[in-house]
């Protein structure tokens, strides 16, 4: 269930194919069936499919030339660059944390473990705006460290470090939340065997632990990256919106949109929509791979 909070949940690993509805006792009359399918599908089309299609339709409203021209803008290219930088720092940091924390939480018993798990989830239950605000309160001009930072000529808020910090905060739990249940299910026996056979800690991790959780890890990193590149609220609070300098892609989308530069706004947004689609494809691919490997392991 934690995976649901984490974002894209693990869904039906291999279970779906097995459960074709049986006739008779467990099926509804045809009118109910078509009714449920109709209502569900209509809801899906109106609330999910149409917004997605609208992004691309608006982006290409004035043709492909206008679409590509939207990217020939130094502020937009700057925003793309800053988004890549923020993700390139936040994702590896949270991946390292996720692996270490999941190892500690899944393989050892200690007091306060459940509290620690809940605390790790906190960034998911905090409004993005509040996530930005907390860094303003610590690093802003009026904040705890503000005077000291000003004396030393260091800018964090309304500058790139603040954007990176806010991104780290909102993507904090993704990797650890994917790994903990997986590592717990795996148990400790394989690792203990490796240790008894003389493997060093690093060898054990690389040869035993990592292969066992690789799909979950990949999935967590994918989600973490999607959120890192797409975060809006938290980054918006700490950014200061300096064009070409402290705007990430989502912030640049907002600026273009508010300038009534619709084609450019949606063209840039379509990059993020495309990233979202890749994330969903990766999710389904990873789930299929994980299910196939589970099946193989159970058969052997």
């Amino acid at each position: 269930m934690a995976a649901v909070i984490a974002g894209l949940p693990s869904g039906d690993r291999g279970g779906a194919a097995a459960r074709v509805p049986d006739a008779g006792a467990r099926s509804e009359p045809a009118w109910v069936r078509y009714g449920v399918i109709g209502v569900g599908t209509a809801f899906f089309v109106v609330f999910l499919l149409l917004p997605l299609l609208a992004v691309f339709a608006e982006a290409f409203r004035k043709g492909a030339a206008a679409y590509f021209a939207a990217f020939a803008n130094s502020d937009t290219m700057g925003a793309i660059g800053l988004t890549l930088v923020a993700a390139a720092i936040a994702v590896p940091l949270n991946t390292l944390f996720g692996v270490v924390a999941a190892w500690t939480l899944a393989k050892f018993e200690f007091r306060g473990k459940n509290i620690l798990l809940t605390l790790i989830d906190l960034p998911f239950s905090v409004s993005p705006v509040v996530a930005g605000l907390i860094y303003v309160l610590v690093f802003g001009a009026q904040g705890w460290l503000g005077p000291w930072l000003i004396d030393h000529g260091i800018r964090i808020i309304f500058a790139v470090p603040g954007i990176v910090l806010a991104t780290v905060f909102v993507t904090f739990p993704f990797v650890v939340r994917e790994l903990v249940p997986l590592m717990q299910a795996q148990g400790c026996e394989e690792e203990e065997a490796a240790r008894v056979l003389g493997a060093s800690g690093w060898q054990m991790f690389r040869r035993v632990t990592l292969p066992n959780v690789k799909w979950g890890l990949l999935y967590g990193v994918t989600l973490c990256n999607a959120r890192a590149m797409g975060e809006f609220g938290a980054v918006s609070v700490v950014s200061g919106h300096i064009r070409g300098q402290t705007n990430t892609i989502p912030l640049q989308v907002e600026i273009l949109y508010n300038d009534y530069n619709m084609v450019a706004a949606f063209a840039l947004a379509s990059l993020l929509a495309f990233l979202a689609l890749i994330t969903l494809v990766a999710k389904n691919w990873i789930e299929a791979r994980a299910a196939a490997e589970d099946l193989k392991r159970n058969q052997s």
């Binding site: 974002g7 894209l8 949940p9 899906f44 999910l48 499919l49 917004p51 997605l52 609208a54 992004v55 608006e58 993005p128 989600l223 999607a226 590149m229 797409g230 975060e231 809006f232 609220g233 892609i249 989502p250 912030l251 989308v253 907002e254 949109y257 706004a265 949606f266 947004a269 993020l272 929509a273 990233l275 979202a276 689609l277 994330t279 969903l280 999710k283």
Partner: peptide
């Protein structure tokens, strides 16, 4: 596609 709102950045959803 049900997970789209998890993957699509909120600003993109907003303007769409």
């Amino acid at each position: 596609l049900i997970d789209l709102p998890f993957a699509l950045p909120t600003a993109v959803a907003g303007i769409a």
